[in-house]
């Protein structure tokens, strides 16, 4: 392994560490705007990893994929969500179901769990970086946690996006096996999902004058 490759590998690890930090920031942030930006940043970081990890041989496919994913996750999604937040007039997640300090502590616990799990999984040797799989698992867990521990519909969408980021990160570890068509299809679905969810948040706000998903509880047995 020459110096150039070592440097690139170091860069990948740095990007991955930033993904972890983004997760922790997401767990501790109360302003919806910050949450949106953190998830967007996380998406951009993950979009960059394939560019760096492929080293010298950048195919058109890799560049195109990274470009589409970065534009969607870094620009389109946050723009749509920030619009929804502005329409709803709620800037903060007040009184989340699980408070911020307990959320951060849970985050620490989840990180430990993800590292332990990642160490135990019998990974094939094709994996890009040994850190990627545990961090992917951690991001998925944080996303799921956000969905259940926050009240606002918009924060749940962000949790969903974080989860999607985590799954994307897991896929990165075995990038060469996923065909281009499927990759684009997944991105298209994610885009449509955010689009439809954004419209719904807007409608929830108009119908109920709030976007607290936990108060949507009229339907039950």
């Amino acid at each position: 392994m020459n110096g150039w490759e070592t440097a690139l590998k170091g860069l990948v690890d740095t990007l991955i560490v930033f993904v972890v930090l983004a997760n922790m920031r997401l767990l501790g942030a109360s302003r919806l705007g910050s949450c949106i930006r953190v998830v967007a940043l996380q998406g951009i970081l993950l979009g960059l990893i394939p560019l760096v990890s492929q080293g010298g041989h950048l195919g058109l496919r890799v560049v195109l994929q990274a470009a589409v994913s970065t534009v969607l996750k870094g620009i389109v999604f946050p723009a749509l969500l920030i619009r929804a937040v502005r329409e709803s007039g709620s800037r903060r997640e007040l009184a989340p179901i699980v408070g911020y300090t307990p959320s951060l502590l849970t985050g620490g616990g989840l990180l430990a769990l993800a590292l332990w799990l990642g160490g135990r999984l019998p990974l094939p040797p094709t994996a890009t970086s040994s850190l990627l799989v545990p961090v992917a698992l951690f991001t998925i867990m944080v996303g799921l946690f956000m969905i259940v521990a926050r009240r606002k519909a918009i924060t749940q969408v962000l949790g969903y996006l974080a989860m999607e980021n985590g799954i994307f990160a897991f896929g990165l570890a075995f990038a060469e096996k996923e065909p281009f068509l499927v990759e684009m299809g997944i991105l298209l679905d994610a885009f449509m999902a955010v689009f439809v969810m954004g419209i719904m948040v807007y409608q929830i706000n108009r119908e109920f004058d709030h976007i607290d998903a936990d108060r949507l509880s009229a339907l039950k047995d």
């Binding site: 799921l144 969905i147 519909a153 749940q156 969903y160 989860m163 999902a193 439809v196 969810m197 719904m200 409608q203 929830i204 119908e207 998903a213 949507l216 509880s217 009229a218 339907l219």
Partner: peptide, 13 residues
Amino acid sequence: LEAAWKYLLICSV
């Protein structure tokens, strides 16, 4: 609206 939101979120997750 409530039903559609639950459907969308639960199924997407």
